[in-house]
C-alpha cells in the first residue's frame, strides 16, 4: 500500500457546554491515500464537520496528531498552517461563502493573490477554471447576479485555484436543488479526474456518498465501517 497523503492519529476534540465538556471526537484515526475519494457520513452532530475541519487544519484537535505525507502539521504555527492550506488544500462549504464585493473571477483569484501571484497570472488561471466550469460568461458578474448553483461552482473554482492536492468539501450540495446538486456532484468527480485530486467530502446525501471509492461512517466519536 502507498504511503498516505494525510494521516490522522487518535484525534480527540470536545466542546465546552455549560459547565461540562461535550466530547465530539474520541480518538479518531484515519489514513487517506493520494488520489482516493473519501466520503465521511454520519448522523447530525456526529462530528463529521469537526473532523473535516481538523483534517483540513482549520481547527486544532485537543489531542492526537495530523501528518501530511511526512510532515507533522500539529507542530506548525497558525500562520504556517495558513500558508500550507493556501498551497495544498482547497475547501468547499455548504454555504458558498463567495465574497459579495468581488466578481466571480476576482473571488477565484483571491487565494492566488494572497499567495503573492501576479494579477495577470491569477486572472489567466482563474479564467481557465471558470471556463472549465462553464462560467466564462459570468466572469465579471457579482455574486448577487449569480444563481446558487453558479455560486457553488465559483466556490469550487476558488478552492482549486492553487491546484491543491486535497479538496475538502462539507455538505457541498446541502443547500442546492436536486438539479444543481447533480451538476455539482458530477463536477466534483470530473475535477478529481482532471486535476488528480484527493477528495474528502462530508455529506448526508446517500446517493452522492455511494459514488465515492471509500465511505467512512462516524458515530459516537468513532469510525464504524
Amino acid at each position: 500500500m502507498n504511503k498516505p497523503i494525510l494521516s490522522a492519529r487518535t484525534l480527540t476534540k470536545s466542546y465546552t457546554q455549560g459547565t461540562g465538556e461535550l466530547p465530539i471526537l474520541k480518538g479518531v484515526s484515519i489514513d487517506i491515500q493520494a488520489g482516493e475519494s473519501l466520503c465521511i457520513v454520519g448522523a447530525s452532530g456526529s462530528g463529521k464537520s469537526t473532523l473535516l475541519h481538523i483534517l483540513g487544519t482549520l481547527d486544532r484537535p485537543d489531542s492526537g496528531e495530523l501528518y501530511f505525507e511526512d510532515r507533522n502539521l500539529s507542530a506548525l504555527s497558525d500562520d504556517e498552517l495558513a500558508q500550507f492550506r493556501n498551497s495544498t488544500m482547497g475547501f468547499v462549504f455548504q454555504f458558498h461563502h463567495v465574497l459579495s464585493e468581488f466578481t466571480a473571477i476576482e473571488n477565484i483569484m483571491l487565494p492566488a493573490r494572497i499567495a503573492g501571484i501576479s494579477k495577470d497570472q491569477a486572472r489567466a488561471d482563474a479564467m481557465r477554471l471558470l471556463s472549465h466550469m462553464g462560467l466564462e460568461s459570468r466572469a465579471n458578474h457579482f455574486p448577487n447576479q449569480l444563481s446558487g448553483g453558479e455560486l457553488q461552482r465559483v466556490a469550487i473554482g476558488r478552492a482549486l485555484m492553487r491546484r491543491p492536492k486535497i479538496l475538502f468539501a462539507d455538505e457541498p450540495t446541502g443547500n442546492l436543488d436536486s438539479n444543481n446538486s447533480q451538476i455539482i456532484q458530477d463536477l466534483f468527480f470530473q475535477l478529481k479526474k482532471d486535476y488528480g485530486l484527493t477528495l474528502v467530502v462530508v455529506t448526508h446525501d446517500q446517493k452522492f456518498a455511494e459514488k465515492f471509492s471509500r465511505q467512512m461512517k462516524l458515530s459516537d466519536g468513532h469510525f464504524s465501517t
Binding site: L58, D78, D79, A82, R85, L110, P111
Partner: peptide
C-alpha cells in the same frame, strides 16, 4: 466573520 473565516481558510494569515 464568515468572510474573514473564508479568507483564512484559503490561506490569509493572521498577520496579513
Amino acid at each position: 466573520f464568515s468572510e474573514i473565516a473564508i479568507l483564512k481558510s484559503f490561506g490569509l494569515s493572521s498577520k496579513q
